[in-house]
Amino acid sequence: MAMKICMIGNSHIGALKLGWKQIRHSHRHEVSFLGVPGVQIRNLAIEHGTVVPTSDHSRKYFEKTLGAESIELDRYDVVVVVGCGLNLIGALSVTGRWRPYTLVDETARDDQTQFDLVSDRLFAEILSSKIRKSLANRYITKMARQGAARVLYVTTPLPSSEIRLKPQEDPVMDLVAGAHGPAVASLYRDAIEQVMGRDKVVFPPADVLVDGAMTDMRYSRGSLRLDGKREHPEDDMHHMNADYGALVLEAVFSRLAGAAGVR
C-alpha cells in the first residue's frame, strides 16, 4: 500500500534522503524530508496539528529541504521522527562517572575511585529518564497528540565501528567500542522501547551493526552532509551514508507493511 510519509529530523536525515534516491524506484510511497541540522532542530513548534519553524535558521531549512513553510500532520499517513539529538553516546554520558557493576571491567572493580557504582535498576531508570526528557520523545508524543495518524521514531545511527581503530579519549566511546558495547547498546535499546513503545521505534537492521553497538564502518564512509554534496569530515564517526539510509528506510517500510491498515 502506497503511503504518504513525512520524515523530520536533524542531520541524520541526510543519509535517509540519499538512500531514498537509491530505492525509490521500487516503492510507491510518497516521501518528504525535513532536515534541520544540529541544535536548530529544537527550533520547531508543533501547534494545532502543524509543525512550523520558530527561528530564521530552521525556517531556512524548511525551505531548503522540504520546499514548504510548514507541515500539516494530518496530511500524512506516517510521520517519522529521525534522530533529533537522542543518541547512544549522549544517553550514556552518565557512565563517565556512574556505572552499574556489570559495566565495570573486572580488573577495575576493586578500584573504588574509578566509577560510582549504581544498581542495574537505577541505571535503567537513568537511561529512561534521559529518553523521556529528550527532544525526540517530546516530538513524537506531541505529534501523536496533534493529529499525526501514525508516528515512528528512527534512532540516531550508532557510532561507526571505525572508533575501534582510533584511540578514544571519550570514556563513553571507549565503553561502546569495548567489551561492554553490546550490553550498553542493549540497555539503551530496551530503554527507548520502554519509553516510546516498541511499535514506534525503528532500529537499524542487525546486519549493519557490529556487536550490536556500532555501525559497520562501511556505512559511515562517504557520508554526505545535508546538502548532499559535501562529505562529513574524515573523523566523523556518527553520520552514515546513502547505503545505510536505504537499509533503514527499508526497515521503516517493512514495519509499515507489517502494520498496513493501521491508522
Binding site: 554520558s93 552518565v94 562517572r97 556512574w98 560510582d116 549504581v118 537505577l122 531508570e125 537513568i126 529518564s129 534521559k130 526528557k133
Partner: peptide, 11 residues
C-alpha cells in the same frame, strides 16, 4: 555520594 546526573530528585 551525589545522585547521577539527570536523575529526577524524587527518584
Amino acid at each position: 555520594e551525589p545522585a547521577p546526573d539527570g536523575l529526577a530528585p524524587q527518584m
